[in-house]
Every structure is written in structure tokens, then in C-alpha cells.
């Protein structure tokens, strides 16, 4: 547990030290979303209808862009190898790093989302469910992303490959994340969609560290 917390603290310290990198993914989130009113047109009714989808797609892409920070730097300077020699199983190392990644990427996105939702004219009644759905969904994005990031460690042109591997697996989160928000806006219950998101989070909490740990072990050989 102490080793787990040590890795979490270290990764958070690194993320805070490179404050700009963390802010960049939020900045990307904001810029992508402002592109939509410019592209689709400023009609409030249209924007309100597509707001949930736009927010989720932008969140997906922001998380995707931040995934290379997860293991790449530690792999290049050899600290991943050192951590691998330590007492903590690699699966738990992955979990600690994913938690740090979510705190430094997913959480800022969630905090920024309500403001952007209002910019897109989303009805205020949808905001609580949007926050809840993102709170359940963004950890899944970080967990699945960890598998992709670990598989493409030390691969030529890993970034393109990473998106090809990870984005298809992100689609279910996108579908149910958007469905939850839309259901609550139109007055239907969002509960079933939120439950499905939770049901996706639970197994990925267990299985993603296993897969990512195995891939890191492979990269360390």
C-alpha cells in the first residue's frame, strides 16, 4: 500500500510539475468544443441537441492525446524498469498510474465540462447527469487507454497505432455517456445508462491493469 501511494504521489508530483501538460489537455478540450459552434452554426437549438455528443467526443479525444504521458517518459528514462524491479506488482503500478492520470486529466475535464455545456446551450437539467456520467466514464477511458499505451510502448509511430487500438474500445463509453445525458434532458430516467457505465467500470478496474501489466512486462524484456 505504501509503494502504491508512493507511485501515486510521485506521478501526481510529476503531473503538477509539468502543469502546462495537464492544462494542455483541458485547453484542447475547450478549443475542440469551440470549433463546433463555428462549424455547425450558432443556432442554440441545434447546439443544445448535439451538446452531449460534442462534449463526450471532445473528452474522448483529450484523454486519447494525454495517454502518451502515462508510461512513455518513464519507459524512456528507465524509471519504469526500476519500478518493475520494486516490490509492487506491475498490475498495481498500472492502477496507481491510471489513478494519477485520471486525477490529472479526467478530473479537470469533468470540472470544465459544465461550463462548456452551458456554452453549448445544454439544458441545466442535464448537468448533474453529465457530471455523474463523466465521473463514471472517464476512469474507464483512462483504464482502457492504459492497455493501449502499454501495448504501444517503444513502438515506431505509436501514436497513430494507439488511436486505432483505443478508439474502437472507447465507443461503448461514448454511446452510454451520451445516452445518459440525452435521456435525462428528455425527461426519461438516466439510471439504466448510468448503471451500464458503472457495470463497464467495475470489470475494467480489474481486467485493464492485468492486460496493461502484461504488456509492460513485455516492453521491459
Amino acid at each position: 500500500m505504501r509503494a502504491f501511494l508512493a507511485i501515486l504521489r510521485r506521478d501526481m508530483a510529476v503531473a503538477l510539475a509539468q502543469g502546462a501538460a495537464t492544462l494542455l489537455s483541458v485547453a484542447f478540450f475547450v478549443v475542440t468544443i469551440t470549433l463546433f459552434p463555428l462549424g455547425v452554426g450558432p443556432d442554440p437549438a441545434t447546439l443544445a441537441r448535439i451538446s452531449s455528443g460534442v462534449l463526450w467526443v471532445a473528452a474522448l479525444l483529450s484523454v486519447l492525446l494525454s495517454l502518451d504521458r502515462l508510461f512513455q517518459a518513464d519507459h524512456e528514462d528507465g524509471s519504469l524498469e526500476q519500478i518493475g524491479l520494486g516490490p509492487l506488482p506491475l498490475e498495481l503500478v498500472v492502477l496507481a498510474k491510471v489513478l494519477a492520470h485520471w486525477l490529472s486529466t479526467g478530473l479537470p475535464l469533468i470540472l470544465a465540462a459544465p461550463v462548456l455545456a452551458l456554452l453549448l446551450n445544454m439544458p441545466v437539467s442535464g448537468l448533474p447527469v453529465l457530471l455523474l456520467a463523466m465521473a463514471l466514464g472517464t476512469p474507464i477511458l483512462s483504464l482502457i487507454g492504459a492497455i493501449g499505451a502499454a501495448l504501444t510502448l517503444g513502438v515506431r509511430r505509436g501514436g497513430v497505432l494507439l488511436s486505432l487500438i483505443v478508439l474502437p474500445l472507447y465507443i461503448p463509453v461514448l454511446i452510454f455517456g451520451v445516452a445518459a445525458v440525452d435521456a435525462s434532458i428528455s425527461g426519461l430516467g438516466a439510471r439504466p445508462h448510468l448503471l451500464i457505465l458503472a457495470a463497464m467500470l467495475a470489470p475494467s478496474l480489474v481486467l485493464a491493469p492485468l492486460a496493461a501489466g502484461a504488456s509492460i512486462r513485455l516492453a521491459l524484456e
Partner: peptide, 28 residues
């Protein structure tokens, strides 16, 4: 998923590592 699997095989030079990385992706 099929496309990602095939691309992952292509990405590694060492066939042994490519095989294991692709196998993990296939199982996911």
C-alpha cells in the same frame, strides 16, 4: 479490432514481442 490487431503485428520488429502484444490485444 481486426485492423488494430493486424497493425500491432506490423509495428514490432521482433516477431516474438509482436506476437505477445497482439495476443493481449486479441484477448482484450
Amino acid at each position: 479490432l481486426y485492423l488494430g490487431y493486424m497493425a500491432l503485428w506490423q509495428a514490432y520488429d521482433d516477431p516474438g514481442r509482436a506476437a505477445r502484444a497482439a495476443a493481449i490485444l486479441a484477448l482484450v
